[in-house]
């Protein structure tokens, strides 16, 4: 493989784990051009004109689904979204049957979110269409990691050699897995912090530095990323109370001061203010949380373009 990739190797984007550093760089570089499109008065390019994109969401999502829909429309794709309530899932149709029915309509791309890890892999084996994983269970959320990397690179100019702290529910988080793969592939040093009950087995072998001391994770960090703590985890007995969680792991201004002076604060959303992050930090000058949302559109445009646009077409920008 040459140093510069000009296309992605697969028809799908199922996870970061299968990508090379060159492919990741290609997506991020392409996203820079796409971001410029969103700044124009006419925010639309014809890159995916005549292409059909189906958004298949088996889990509720506002942010990710909206972001994909905006990205598709800005690329001029014909797009439609199927949410769980209006689909035949409630009638008990299997995922493979749903996939075959969609396939019969010959879409170019299917974007799917599903509660089961590996559901996108099942879909990719069944469909000719390119599959984009918009989050599968506790496995991966590749476009989130790409937009996080894009945001860090935009602010820091690079990924290599940076210290990135990720704190929260590491065990159940697909955002953590995708970020761990992406950032370590690109040469960043990733510190992973959370209660030991919420750390995946063998976490050190994922290439990250695990710690239960949030101060150690944050100290000297270039970027600090919180993960959402879900209330049901507390009920599952993973930790005693939200109050105690905030006391031990919550991101307070005092803890942020341990990071580099120009460190950025990130959160994939939706935030639990007062649980994993104090509002003063979330809304402070170092926060890039809304930049992440804006960059999500650009990154998703890049992914869709690279998978469905093809390298033969005129570039979008």
């Amino acid at each position: 493989m040459s140093d510069t990739a000009t296309r992605l190797r697969g028809k799908d984007l199922l996870g970061i784990a299968g990508l090379t550093a060159e492919e990741i760089t290609l997506i991020l570089d392409t996203a820079e051009a796409m971001k410029e499109v969103s700044a124009r008065p006419i925010k639309k390019v014809p890159a995916l004109r005549g292409k059909t994109v189906i958004n298949l969401f088996y889990e509720p999502s506002t942010r990710t689904r909206t972001s994909f829909e905006v990205a598709e429309k800005r690329l001029s794709a014909d797009t439609l979204s199927i949410a769980i309530a209006s689909s035949s899932v409630v009638k008990g149709e299997t995922l493979i049957d749903t996939a075959l029915n969609l396939e019969a309509m010959n879409p170019d791309i299917v974007v799917m979110r599903h509660a089961s890890s590996g559901a996108c892999h099942l879909l990719a084996r069944t469909c000719q269409a390119g599959i984009v994983n918009a989050g599968d269970g506790m496995h991966e959320h590749p476009t989130q990691a790409l937009l996080d990397a894009f945001t860090i690179r935009e602010r820091k100019g690079r990924l290599k050699g940076l210290k990135v702290a990720i704190t929260g529910d590491l065990l159940h988080s697909r955002v953590f897995r995708s970020n761990a793969y992406l950032l370590t592939t690109m040469g960043a040093e990733v510190w992973a912090c959370g209660p030991p009950t919420l750390m995946p087995a063998g976490i050190a072998r994922l290439g990250v530095r695990p710690t239960t001391r949030v101060e150690e994770a944050v100290e000297g960090a270039d970027a600090v990323m919180m993960l959402r703590i879900q209330l049901e985890r507390m009920q599952g007995g993973f930790f005693p109370s939200l109050r105690e969680y905030f006391q031990v792991f919550g991101m307070t201004p005092a803890r942020v001061r341990l990071a580099k002076p120009d460190a950025i604060i990130m959160h994939p959303g939706p935030m639990n203010r007062g649980v994993e992050i104090e509002s003063e930090v979330a809304d402070g000058p170092a926060s890039v949380i809304l930049d992440q949302v804006a960059n999500g559109v650009a990154v998703r445009m890049a992914v869709l373009y690279l998978l469905a646009g093809g390298s033969d077409d005129e570039t979008a920008a």
């Binding site: 784990a17 890890s117 590996g118 599968d136 269970g137 506790m138 496995h139 991966e140 697909r174 897995r177 995946p200 087995a201 063998g202 976490i203 072998r205 994922l206």
Partner: peptide, 15 residues
């Protein structure tokens, strides 16, 4: 099985 590979696949582990 609970271990590195379950963590990579995002599947719940049986220790």
């Amino acid at each position: 099985h609970e271990g590195l590979h379950a963590s990579q696949l995002g599947l719940r582990g049986i220790p």
